[in-house]
Nucleic acid binder design. Sequence first.
DNA 1: TGGGGTGGCTAATGCCATTAGCCTTAAGCT
DNA 2: AGCTTAAGGCTAATGGCATTAGCCACCCCA
Lengths: 193, 193
Amino acid sequence: MPRAGLDAEVVTEAGATLADEIGIGQLSMSILATRLGVKTPSLYKHVDGLGALTHRIAVLGATEAGDAVEEAVRGRSGVEALAAATQALRGYVRRHPGRYAATTGARPTGDDDPLGPALARPIASLAVVLQDYGLEPDEEIHALRMVRSMVHGFATIEDTGGFQWAADVDESFTWMIDFLDHGLRGRHDLHLP
Amino acid sequence: MPRAGLDAEVVTEAGATLADEIGIGQLSMSILATRLGVKTPSLYKHVDGLGALTHRIAVLGATEAGDAVEEAVRGRSGVEALAAATQALRGYVRRHPGRYAATTGARPTGDDDPLGPALARPIASLAVVLQDYGLEPDEEIHALRMVRSMVHGFATIEDTGGFQWAADVDESFTWMIDFLDHGLRGRHDLHLP
DNA sequence: TGGGGTGGCTAATGCCATTAGCCTTAAGCT
DNA sequence: AGCTTAAGGCTAATGGCATTAGCCACCCCA
């Protein structure tokens, strides 16, 4: 009987893809094992149970999302950076809803857990984008939380099919970014002498 | 052996409360049965399984959230209505995270499913609030989606403990509402002759 | 060539959801 | 009051899942 050639990375990647297809909540060791052409207990040679698997998927998702945002922002500034960053995040959620869902709700288990830094990266990239607007220091955190909330909320509602009417969702998103940009630039002007 | 005095409402309410405590994902028929002092199969006399139970919790949550927003808005207008509505929604999520989580992801199963109207109510209330800003008709849907996304995103991030730094979360929320109000009023002025 | 670890497997346990079928209770009717 | 009946408990049984223990073949390397 030939080996299946699995390791922790392959299993995690396959689990992530499966989660994207059926939802992180439906992910099970047995379905994943079937998908990989292996019996369920074999997965335990590579991954420490379902909990550990979803944790790994969360790290993967956060890392990939961070990569996507960073790449989108590279070489841009101002509204363009804001639009690119938020669209990159939203696009990642659309392409990988299961991985993204794994990141929400996941909490680092300790100081050496790679999940902590991984989760921080997309947020940090957004923070950099917002610095272009020259906000007051105590406003930066509020603006960051706002943008995070907006993109996260929009993407998750979109993912669950929560937007009902026929109005174009893409258009709503760009309108929202425009709204943000205007408001943030207004604040900046507010603080000029 | 005396009867436990259960019916569908009591079971749903108890399930909702349990979901608020341990999370909708951890809700199980067996824990709920134990909580109600009854054996698991007895619950099936009142509720058609775990899926049906969470569906009922979703209807309950959406209805309660709708009530909360409607009451908050009553007698107010403008920013005050916007602040009251969004704070009411956020407050509901804080008080009843399990019920709210049940509403997200739940989809009506048919035209006679009470979930549809229940989910629509909080959104409709928000739409009414936004009408005070006298937006252009084609902008209304974008603004509504934006506000929904923002509040939903903020509340869910807050619920999962996603806001890290010590900065006051209440302050961020009121800052965000203020930002919205300014932007929305600005749009209105934009469209005056 | 001959270990030894790696990575499969089967078997077994225990929890959970769900269904079937029994039996008591309580409510209502005569 | 006594009888009937349905509602609402229960036990028993099934099947899916996660997880663990322990077995065994394969492959790499000495």
